[in-house]
């Protein structure tokens, strides 16, 4: 909390090049965020986050459904461990692994992926999937199967049961999972840093460049504040929506 206070304070102070000392009060740091060369990074960040969210959702739903509804406890346990292992492996190891996969030495990709936005996107989706799967699986598993049985007894074939009952009832999980993934991706650092190779930059990479390479802490602080505000806003929306959705029918309290 105190650290964040210091961050806010610094982000409105003037940067004196070549020094960690700061000058007077200014909004120059925030105006710099809107300068064309930086605005591009923010736009890239938004696009990458949005694409990551959509692709993660599509890739995670089947796994989450299997995790929630597979009858065999052993298969469920296997899926859970496979889901969680990358979650616990740490960002660096995971990202490094993708550098190997996306580089041309293992698999001869028809197009260049490493150090390109596409490669960063693949890495971000992989990074977000465990989170999304866990949130979706929790939501799906809280749907009482009695609704699905009721739909089937009324003549709905399995695909209709899924579309008309399961999917709508898992909507709270879809919404919260998507918002959480968007918020996290928005401030992602290691994945774009390593897979982007300096050619693809997201907002967190700019924060690091300015802070640790140029020692422009105030300028860096302004970007960090932007990342922080966007993340907190999106998560605030999430919890607000969840508070309302919690009362939705078909969901037992967790």
């Amino acid at each position: 909390m105190v650290a964040l206070g210091a961050l806010f304070q610094l982000s409105v102070l003037t940067f004196v090049p070549g020094s960690l000392k700061t000058g007077g009060l200014t909004d120059a740091n925030f105006r710099a965020v809107l300068a064309p060369q930086y605005l591009r990074y923010i736009w890239d960040t938004i696009v990458l986050s949005a694409l990551t969210t959509i692709l993660t959702l599509l890739a995670s739903y089947p796994v989450a459904y299997a995790l929630a509804r597979t009858p065999s406890a052993r298969v469920r346990s296997l899926i859970l461990v496979l889901t969680l292992a990358p979650f616990f492996t740490g960002a660096i190891v995971r990202t490094y692994a993708w550098m190997l996969v996306l580089g041309q030495s293992f698999i001869k990709w028809p197009v260049k992926l490493l150090f390109e936005p596409e490669g960063v996107l693949i890495g971000l989706v992989h990074f977000s999937m465990p989170t999304m799967i866990l949130i979706l699986a929790a939501a799906i598993s809280h749907i009482d199967p009695v609704y699905e049985r009721a739909a089937a007894s009324l003549g709905a074939r399995p695909s209709r049961v899924f579309l008309r009952v399961t999917l709508p009832l898992s909507l709270p999980g879809i919404v919260s999972g998507s918002l959480v993934v968007f918020a996290w991706t928005f401030s992602a650092f290691p994945t774009p840093e390593l897979l982007g190779g300096g050619r693809v930059k997201m907002i967190a990479n700019v924060v690091k460049d300015l802070a640790l390479d140029s020692f422009n802490w105030p300028g860096s602080g302004a970007f960090a504040v932007v990342a922080l505000v966007v993340t907190l806003l999106v998560l605030a929306v999430t919890s607000r929506m969840l508070g309302r959705e919690a009362a939705a029918d078909g969901h037992r309290p967790a």
Binding site: V207, W217, L235
Partner: peptide, 22 residues
């Protein structure tokens, strides 16, 4: 407050702590 580190972006927390430590 106690759960906030879960949602604060790493770079924001890192930079804030760096400034504070300095």
């Amino acid at each position: 407050v106690l759960l906030s580190p879960l949602v604060v972006p790493g770079v924001a927390a890192g930079l804030g702590l760096l400034i504070l430590a300095a």
